[in-house]
Design a protein around this nucleic acid. Structure first.
Lengths: 169, 169
DNA sequence: CCAGATTAGTTGGACGTCAAAGGATTGTGA
DNA sequence: TCACAATCCTTTGACGTCCAACTAATCTGG
């Protein structure tokens, strides 16, 4: 999956070299790791979205659809969706708006609590989520470009970062 | 650096469990690693931007400023900035617009090539870049939440992903 | 029992990113 | 030399994210 071949060297290694030259050795590894995460996130997001684009989905909307498909009733309060996906409530409103326009989700009022709105997966939404997952599994998740053991090691290291950031209890 | 304590479990581990239940074992590690990268990117970006916000900077603009500060003349063609930062040319135009409005950078025409515009760091821009780096070093880069050896291991794994994606030659 | 606090969701604004299209300048091949 | 191609940058539009402010509904304590 080669992207742009314009770069004849690693810009992050270059930055780390600059950090060392300025006497910032203590910060250099963290700077390089953080910058790498930003870049890899960008690479993987683009790969995911190129797969989802033909389906009319984005990664954010795919995640929401998938989350609903894993819930018992195929519906969740918008607030809970935000907590689970760890995005701002306004982002949930935005995503549900678009999914609703496409007929993939419906907004349903909560029975007992008038403040709550549920996002309810439609049949069309469920079918699309299934299709999207199949494509992502074979074209992205199984093709990260590193071995399975490295993939697991990467996951573990990232879990440590999330853990230390208080990402979950 | 605890964020929102609302989550009593790890949503990514939960998703991986769902993948296994559906018989998608081959894709589960990749899915979990990719989702972790998305989440950690979000965590770290927020941490960086909370440090830069008081300075009136965003990470994108900080990166541009820093790149210029490491160049010999304190100036680079906009196109080269995009290649080095690995972002779209339109993003560079946007960032330079804002930096120019703040007096941190100036647009200068190229001597020999009428198509090229250079972004030239101002004294104010250079001073701000220095200040921002000092803050980021001590408040973010030296505090990723994992050990230095783990930080380096993380960097190496991410470099493999970048490499296999054809990120540089 | 009702005023004040809390919670849920929406809206509007600021930013960043990319894609696509367009204008200007430079390079090139017949 | 000159029309066509390539390069550089900008503009516009679609998305996603966050923050801050606002409305509506529910809860709570005196």
């Amino acid at each position: 999956m080669p992207t742009d071949p314009s770069l004849q060297f690693d810009p992050i290694a270059e930055a780390r070299r600059h950090w060392a030259e300025h006497g910032w050795e203590a910060a250099a590894p963290g700077m390089a790791a953080l910058t790498s995460i930003m870049r890899v996130q960008q690479i993987l997001l683009q790969r995911v979205e190129s797969v989802l684009r033909p389906l009319g989905l984005t990664f954010a909307r795919y995640e929401l659809l998938t989350l609903l498909s894993f819930s018992r009733t195929g519906s969740l309060p918008l607030g809970k969706i935000g907590v689970r996906l760890q995005v701002h409530a306004a982002s949930v409103t935005n995503a549900v708006d678009r999914l609703e326009r496409e007929g993939l989700v419906e907004r349903v009022p909560h029975d007992n609590d008038g403040r709550v709105t549920l996002a309810q997966l439609t049949d069309k939404g469920r079918a699309l989520a299934t299709e999207a997952t199949a494509l992502l599994n074979e074209q992205v998740f199984e093709q990260l470009g590193i071995s399975e053991s490295d993939t697991k090691a990467l996951y573990d290291l990232l879990a440590q970062v999330r853990r230390s950031a208080g990402d979950y209890a």
